[in-house]
Nucleic acid binder design. Structure first.
Length: 761
DNA sequence: GCTAGGTTAATTTTT
DNA sequence: TTAACCTAGC
């Protein structure tokens, strides 16, 4: 069968069906560890090798560069040649840039537009907020950024903001959004959201362009379809209307990015959106042993909004999921450290090297406890998903200088480095420059050059400004010459600007590292033709460069773990409020809870042979000790797949009762003497308690309703004490505290005053 | 214009 | 607890 078709070898029947269903809309529901990338790449290889499509007729979009790279590599391996000739394989954003550069003028840009990073974006928004005379404290730029981002994710342009949302950002949201888009256009810049939204606008308003892509792209593939947002969905749907060959691969149970615009509804609705669609389920799991898989399946079964899959494996039962409770977070970290040493030393049923072990946490601040512990015991670890190389301050500064050399009119870049290193050009001088730029209708750099020449800014500042603007002119002249040595230019720029010298003079411990990073940046330049090519690449690819080979334990968030697998997984911090996160539940209620549950499912399914869930009775939250209740997800694990471990130093198994369910857990809870714990436990048995799975929904609805307090309500805050609600905006409360005065706090940090006595402190 | 100390508020993060 | 941000004083 697969004879003469090596790309079909080793596929199971479902995978093979997905590969061969080339025509018409197809949804491949691929559970965790079921070989989805294998099926997807085999399908593309199949299209190519059977002559159904040429490399440039296949569109394949992913969310991350890593996924795009892997797809290209694997297709290349299958068809026996590099997949470099496939221009439409990439992330939504990379493909968006490609399209947009081609048609920039249709949305009022020129093809040389710059792509803003988050920093630039915030700086721009701050200016607009200040210009609109809005109090930045009450209405921070970050909030506006997320509001605008939310609109862009849903393909809402400024004049189409729904009336119900016009109140956003103090009623100024829509106006500021419009102003922001105007400003971007004059700067000839786009943000990440625009990369998709502008493309969509072009396709919607220019049938000729749309027709061109519709004819061109015969086969369309989407990886991680559950992560698409509305704008991406609309974009895909338009293009797919041509040949109607759309293959979406995804897993509704792994949708964990709802908070940044991903719309699970896209995958849940697929069959309605694309009538006659085939749905193929990949359910055979090749990653995990039986108990792990079954525990994960049992847990996710608690979600109502899902298409449903039954994962199975030919691997045996293996080890049960281990469950253990600890006295506090430090003990949890200590215990996990010891377990890892035991596993690495071969003293446990499952043996793995440090590279095979990962700790997955809900929120990045939880990583600290493990870092502290591992440092003291000298256990090598790596943190995945920390600050990325291209997001570091020194790299962004250096990039701003490079941007100025390519286009001196880049105002945001100019603003960023005009006084870095310090040149005595403070607020006042910058205001003068900005004013001159506005008056002359030019960019900041050219206005600055004029001011410097005319001597309008005096003293050291004037001299420095003159040096800087002349240097920019020189660099730009070099960058204009075809075939210039861009690596040498970059070195010159960093040198002449005084930027390298600035870090050489820096005596803080970070100094040397930053210089090292700058060197790496220059080295990275070597791989590119010129500066422009490099800048484009960096704007989209924020990957961390350094990969070191040493054996280390990985520590990362559950989000960062998606798509990865490890023989041994630790899942600490399964406590109510932490995981599921209180905030997720407050903000989006049942939807939030279900996303948290999917996150738990993602965590468990990362494990190949051993998964250990743990929780602590006490945890320091923002410096305050707090009693914690085990997560409802602990109770939702099927008891048959769980082995309860006895925590060290506790009689009678302590939390061991948790696996038996709520009643038993509460009965045993008095093993812990903390008054707070006792009160919490007592409260648990009251109607308002933390729910069993079947109660979870009503509880969440109630919690949601209680998230807000009406003005006038008397409330209690752990730090500020008693107070009265003055105003409420969603979950944000303005409270006048008796002792602490007026504050803005999130409703989830408040309780009704009459319930304050129930609190565990 | 810069820096040190006080104030504030507090997921998840890719592009 | 802590890190980022702002304000007051040099």
């Amino acid at each position: 069968m697969a004879q003469g078709a090596p790309w079909l070898e080793g596929l199971n029947p479902a995978q093979r069906a997905a590969v061969e269903a080339t025509e018409g809309p197809v949804l491949v529901l691929a559970g965790a560890g079921t070989g989805k990338t294998k099926a997807l790449t085999a399908r593309i290889a199949h299209l190519l090798r059977t002559g159904r499509a040429r490399p440039n007729e296949i569109l394949a979009v992913t969310f991350t560069n890593k996924a795009a790279r892997e797809m290209k590599n694997r297709i290349g391996a299958l068809i026996g040649e590099a997949a470099e000739g496939m221009p439409w394989v990439g992330t939504f954003h990379a493909i968006g840039v490609r399209m947009l550069r081609r048609h920039a003028e249709l949305v009022g840009l020129t093809p040389g537009f710059t792509i803003l990073d988050t920093d630039d974006q915030l700086r721009l928004l701050k200016q607009l907020i200040a210009a609109a005379d809005i109090d930045e404290k009450r209405w921070p730029a970050r909030l506006l950024a997320s509001v605008i981002d939310g609109w862009k994710n849903r393909a809402i342009v400024p004049d189409r903001v729904p009336a119900a949302e016009a109140e956003a950002f103090g009623g100024q949201g829509p106006a500021l959004y419009a102003a922001y888009q105007d400003r971007l256009r004059t700067l000839n810049a786009v943000d990440f959201g625009d990369l998709v939204l502008h493309c969509l606008t072009i396709l919607q308003t220019h049938p000729d362009v749309l027709g061109q892509y519709q004819r061109w792209l015969r086969y369309i593939h989407v990886d991680e379809y559950q992560d698409t947002n509305v704008a991406q969905y609309l974009w895909l749907r338009l293009i797919a209307q041509g040949h109607r060959n759309l293959c979406c691969v995804g897993d509704d149970d792994q949708s964990i990015y709802g908070w940044r615009g991903a719309e699970v509804g896209n995958i849940l609705r697929f069959e309605k959106d694309f009538p006659g669609a085939q749905v193929i389920r990949l359910e055979q799991n090749y990653r995990s042993t039986g108990h792990i898989l079954s525990a994960a399946s049992g847990l996710i079964a608690g979600n109502r909004d899902r298409l449903g899959k039954t994962l199975w494996t030919e691997a045996g039962g293996g080890e049960k999921v281990r469950l253990i409770g600890h006295w506090d977070g430090e003990e949890e970290a200590r215990w996990i450290g010891e377990e890892i040493e035991a596993i690495a030393a071969g003293r446990r049923a499952v043996v793995a090297g440090l590279d095979g072990v990962a700790i997955l946490v809900r929120a990045s601040h939880q990583m600290r406890a493990f870092e502290d512990r591992f440092l003291t015991i000298g256990l090598p670890y790596r943190v995945i998903g920390g600050p990325r190389f291209y997001e570091r301050q020194e790299i962004r500064d250096a990039m701003a200088y490079l941007r100025l050399a390519v286009s001196p009119a880049d105002d945001l870049a100019f603003e960023r480095v005009v006084n870095t290193p310090k040149r005595g050009l403070g607020e006042r001088a910058q205001a003068t420059i900005a004013q001159a730029a506005r008056a002359g209708g030019t960019g900041l750099a050219s206005a600055a050059a004029r001011l410097a020449r005319e001597g309008a800014i005096g003293g050291r500042a004037g001299a420095e400004l003159r040096r800087l603007t002349e240097a920019i002119g020189r660099w730009h002249a070099v960058a204009l010459a075809p075939g210039y040595d861009h690596v040498a230019l970059a070195e010159t720029i960093l040198d002449e600007s005084g930027y390298t010298a600035m870090w050489q003079a820096d005596k803080t411990p970070e100094g040397p590292g930053r210089l090292e990073n700058l060197k790496e940046l220059v080295k990275a330049l070597e791989g590119f033709e010129n500066l422009q090519g490099f800048l484009d690449h960096v704007a989209l690819i924020m990957d961390n460069a350094a990969e070191d080979a040493a054996e280390k334990v990985s520590v990362m968030t559950l989000h960062a773990a998606k798509g990865l697998e490890f023989p041994v997984i630790f899942l600490p911090g399964w406590e109510e409020g932490l995981f599921p996160s209180q905030r997720a539940m407050d903000e989006t209620g049942l939807r939030g809870l279900e996303e948290e549950r999917r996150l738990a499912h993602v965590g468990l399914t990362r494990a190949e042979r051993l998964a250990t869930v743990s929780f602590a009775a006490n945890r320091r939250v923002y410096g305050q000790w707090q009693s914690q209740l085990p997560s409802r997800f602990v109770d939702e694990l099927p008891p048959a797949d769980v082995e309860v471990l006895t925590p060290p130093g506790l009689y009678g198994g302590g939390f061991g009762a948790a696996a038996g369910g709520m009643a038993e857990r509460v009965a045993r809870a008095d093993a812990y003497a903390s008054p707070g714990w006792a009160r919490m436990a007592a409260r648990t048995s009251a109607p308002r308690g933390i729910a069993r799975p079947e109660e979870a929904r009503t509880l969440t609805v109630r919690a949601d309703a209680e998230a807000a307090f009406a003005p006038g309500a008397r409330v209690f805050h752990a730090k500020f004490g008693y107070g009265r609600v003055m105003a409420a905006d969603g979950d944000k409360m303005q409270v006048s505290f008796e002792k602490a005065g007026e504050k803005h706090v999130l409703a989830s940090y408040l309780v009704a005053a009459e319930r304050a006595a129930d609190l565990p402190f």
